[in-house]
Amino acid sequence: MPPFHRRFLTQPPLLSLYAQLVRYGFRKHATYWGAAAAGAFTNTVFGVLRAYVLIALWRARPGLGGYDITDAVTFCFLTQAYIGPMQVFGGGLEVAQRIRTGDIALDLVRPAPLLLWSLAQDLGRAGYLFLARSLPPTVAGALLLGIVLPGDAAVWAAFAASFALGIVISFGWRYIVAMATCWLRDDRGLTVVSLVLTTFFSGLTLPLVIFPEPLGTIAGALPWAAMVQVPADVYLGKADVPGALAFQAMWAAVLLSLGALLTRAARRKVVIDGG
C-alpha cells in the first residue's frame, strides 16, 4: 500500500484538518491578548452601567418578565460575556476581508468547503475569547453586584450546549453577511443593518422578555434571540431546555444551509464567471 493511503486510513485527514484550524483560530487570537483584555474591561464597565438601569427598572416593577432583580443582573452580565465569543457587534471572519481583496477565489477552489473551514477557525477564535472576554466580566459582575449561580449540573450542561449553539448561530449569521459582500459594492450599509438587528433583537440592549407585545413574540422567534436571549434563559432556568435547544438547532441548520447555498453561488460567480 502506498504511504499516502496508509496515512489516509490511520489518520482521518479531515478531522485533523479542522482540529488544526480550530487551534489556528485560537492561537491567532491569543496573540492579541492586550486587545482582548481591553475588550473584557470595556464589557465589564458597560455590564455595570446596564445592570444598574435594569436594577432600577426591576425595583419599579418587581418580577417583570418573570425575572427577579438578580436574574436581571445575571442576564446583563451574561449578555456582556457573549459579546466576545459571539462577536455580537459583527465581523470576526477572515472571509469578509478576503472577499474585499479578491483572495476569496483561492479559498473557493480549495477542496475543503469554505463554510466548514471558516467555522472551524471561528470556533477557535470563540474558544479563546470565551476565556479572555467572557469570564472576566462575569466574575466581576458576580463580585460587584451578585449573579445567579445554578446549583444543578444539568443546567450547566444545558447551558454549555446552548452557548455553543449560540456561537454556531452567530457564525452562521456573520458568514451570510460576509458572503453577501460578493454581490454588494459597499458593504458598510449591510454591516450596520446587521449590527442593529443583532444588538437590538438578540436581547443585548434589553431582555426580550420586557419587549411590549407583539414585538416581544416576534423578536423571540428570530435567529438573534437564539444567540443571546435563549442561552441566558437556559442558564437562568427560565427555558424549557429541549425546546430551547431544538429552536437553536433549527436556526443553526437554517443559517448554515443558507451559508452553504451562498458559497455555491459565490463560487459560480467568482470562479466560473470570473468575478
Partner: peptide, 20 residues
C-alpha cells in the same frame, strides 16, 4: 438608525414603568 435604537430602548423601559 443606530442612535434611534437608544430611544427605542427608553421607550421599551417606559412601556413597563412610569418612573425610573
Amino acid at each position: 438608525v443606530t442612535a434611534g435604537l437608544e430611544v427605542a430602548a427608553i421607550w421599551i423601559v417606559f412601556s413597563n414603568t412610569t418612573t425610573l
